[in-house]
Structure formats: C-alpha cells, structure tokens
C-alpha cells in the first residue's frame, strides 16, 4: 500500500518458547479507522508496543510514517497519540499539571481543543489524578492523547477503562472526527460490536497470527452469507477464530 501510516511485515516475537507474534503483516492506510481484534492474549498489545517502539522487532520490520520507531523514537512518537491499556498516568499530578506538562512535549498542541475536551470529559483542572475514578483517568489519558491532533491515534483496549457513556457517545464521535480530518486511528478491542460500530478496517489476531485483515465491508461481503444477510463481525470472528477463542474473549 502506497500511503500506509503503519506497515508491519513478517513481525515475529517470542516470549520464551511462546510466540506472541508469528510472522504478522499489517498495513494501516492513512485516514483509516483500523480495529485490531482478538481474544485476550492474542498478541494485540504486543503488536501495538512494536508500533510504538517499546519492543524491538525480533524478526521482520515495523515502519510507522515510513520510519523505524526504535531507531527514531522522537520523530515517530511526536506524531502519535496513545492511550495505554494500563492506567499509568502519574498519580501525583493534577489534571491541570498533566495538561501543562503534555502541552510542552507536543508542538501541535491545540489549547482550544484541549479545553473543549476537558469540558466534554468534565475534568476539573485542580483534581489530582490519584483521586479520579478509573473512567475519569481514562478520559484524562484520552484528553492528552488527542489535544495535539496527532496524525495517528493508538488506543489499546479503550473499552476496558472508559465508562459506557464515553465509550458509546464520545469515543465514537472523536474517532469519526479524526477519520474525517484524514488522520488515522488504530485501536484494539475484544468487544467486537464496538469495533464494528466505528472501524472501517479490521485485523483479526489469534495466537499471534493474523487470521483476517482488510476493509470491514469487503470482509463481510466476501464472507458466506448467514441467513440471507451479511455476517456481523461477531460471526466473522467465530468463523475464523473459533468458538473457544471467542468464549475466552467474552469472558
């Protein structure tokens, strides 16, 4: 693909004897909303960590904006907004301090947009992160990942932290805005209906292997018709990954 924001080829990663990623290929086009789905432990977070340069490719290559994220972390990371699965914001900061700190690191920071997001997420600047609920922490994390209008937004399991209101209304709206502006989103989730709502491209991972990847519409179209209609992502997942993995995912 000519205009790939992320291009991963033949990426392999082992933790001990277990292959967390096995010859994975992934291409995320500019402007796409790309969903990464798979059961817990399928390798989604490991793949994302490679994209961020937090893990060194054992075999294969990872390019983000055409650059190696390990060799050129500053050039890559300054263009990525990232919300981690773990809630690892420094707990001693206030929301105001978090904004002030993050602002200095990203030249493209948009004060007006940050303020708009803060109001939307109902975050008090004086509130210490330590005192926030899990959902509020995730909102704060999302705020500082969005406010500099990154070219690529990477969300690792956002559903696990965000409360249903933010998930359903805000996250979807934010993602649509980003896509509309021609920027790119890569997000991982094990909640398939959520991915189906916002993603236009989907990559399915199982046991470190890509089992299905492409535009969601095409994947559905090419799949076998279920009861006279196109299959849902759920049904596609079951068909490719199997009952066992799916039941794991649901738990």
């Amino acid at each position: 693909m000519g205009d790939s924001v992320i291009s991963v080829s033949e990426l392999t990663r082992r933790f001990g004897a277990r292959a967390a990623l096995d010859a994975v290929n992934l291409s995320v086009a500019r402007g796409a909303v790309h969903g990464l789905v798979g059961a817990n432990g399928a390798g989604k977070t490991t793949l994302i960590k490679h994209v961020l340069g937090l893990l060194v490719a054992e075999r294969g290559s990872v390019r983000v904006f055409g650059l190696d994220p390990v060799a050129e972390p500053v050039a890559v990371l300054s263009r990525i907004g990232y919300l981690s699965e773990e809630n690892d914001l420094p707990v001693w900061m206030t929301v105001g301090e978090l904004i002030r700190y993050t602002r200095a690191l990203y030249p493209g920071w948009d004060d007006a947009y940050a303020e708009e997001l803060r109001l939307m997420f109902a975050l008090e600047p004086a509130a210490r992160i330590k005192t926030l609920s899990k959902g509020q922490k995730a909102r704060a994390g999302l705020l500082v990942a969005l406010a500099y209008r990154p070219e690529l937004l990477v969300l690792d399991e956002p559903s696990s932290g965000l409360d249903p209101i933010v998930r359903r209304d805000i996250l979807a709206a934010v993602i649509r805005t980003i896509a509309h502006e021609g920027r790119t989103v890569l997000f991982s989730s094990h909640l398939l209906d959520e991915v189906e709502q916002v993603a236009d491209h989907v990559t399915m991972i199982s046991h470190g292997k890509v089992v299905l990847s492409g535009p969601l519409a095409a994947l559905k179209r090419d799949a076998q018709v279920v009861g006279g209609r196109e299959p849902t992502l759920d049904e596609l997942f079951f068909a490719h990954v199997g009952i066992h993995a799916a039941s794991e995912a649901e738990t």
């Binding site: 500053v74 990371l77 914001l89 420094p90 707990v91």
Partner: peptide, 23 residues
C-alpha cells in the same frame, strides 16, 4: 516507576516511554 503506589510496576511505564523525547 511512574507510580509510587503501584505494587509491581517495575518496567518503564508506557506514559514515560512514549514521550516524544530521545532516550
């Protein structure tokens, strides 16, 4: 560690690791 309260977070926190600053 990014958080002095976390019990087992010894690895570098992604929050710090993903700052756009060179090592």
């Amino acid at each position: 560690r990014s958080s002095a309260d976390a019990s087992s977070a010894y690895g570098l926190a992604p929050f710090v690791a993903t700052r756009p600053l060179s090592t």
